[in-house]
Design a binder for these strands. Sequence first.
DNA 1: TATTGTTATACTCTATAACTATA
DNA 2: TATAGTTATAGAGTATAACAATA
Lengths: 138, 138
Amino acid sequence: MQEMTEDDRLVDALGETAFRTMGPLTGLAADAGLSLTQLRVLAILRDRRLRIGDLAQYLGLEKSTMTGLVARAEKKGLLARVPNEQDARAVDVVVTDAGREVAASLESAMRAALLPLTDRLAASDRRRLRELLEQMLR
Amino acid sequence: MQEMTEDDRLVDALGETAFRTMGPLTGLAADAGLSLTQLRVLAILRDRRLRIGDLAQYLGLEKSTMTGLVARAEKKGLLARVPNEQDARAVDVVVTDAGREVAASLESAMRAALLPLTDRLAASDRRRLRELLEQMLR
DNA sequence: TATTGTTATACTCTATAACTATA
DNA sequence: TATAGTTATAGAGTATAACAATA
């Protein structure tokens, strides 16, 4: 049996962390009648408006997939399509007031749901972990 | 605008880390013709055999969902169903040799795919991050 | 001609409800 | 009667390919 390297162990821990984080998030989104992807779209559009194609690229999805996601969120009243002023082919996607409310209430629920994950760490370790993750993501 | 607490920032960083980790993993699994869930099943069954219901519970899915997942993986030759010896109603799921090969090759590909995520950290910081994550997950 | 978004189609994932076989 | 798993059905997410409107 091959010994795992230090970096292998880090990568494994990142993977496990991702699964343990996604679980609660998926559940919470589902409770609100949303998929994780729709939740991400809501978060992304919180402070900007993007065209369908840009949104798709941002999420690594096909344009046609984005069309469907936006259509379903629009039917729920969370997003709206508005014509792009510069380019008549393009469509801007914006969050509605209702969408903003849902996003805000989910945001706090998610923080509450993820916090228990960090229970095993002392406050100083949580701070250090936060610093390291932020640096990694920068 | 409310100031974010230290813990809020940690939770946000965990969420972002999860998304940034899942992206590459999903892509790699897809390249191998697998969903992330099927990959997890392969990993879970690496060193044990579980019944359909136990697998479902482990993953937080319905039995009927598990039936489909196993059926598709079985059709690809990665998993096999074997009758449970104690209970004639039950079915054990096991990984085939082909499944083991796929899992092993994906494992190394995944490590390679996630490593760049940690580029911005010095070796000592990567080590510290690994320690903190392992402690958190313990 | 090239690009933006939509539509048509197909497959996977997921859940709920009804069912079969066994306990 | 209760449990294990399957089947039928339905909706969401995803991709590919073909298409219409605009650039």
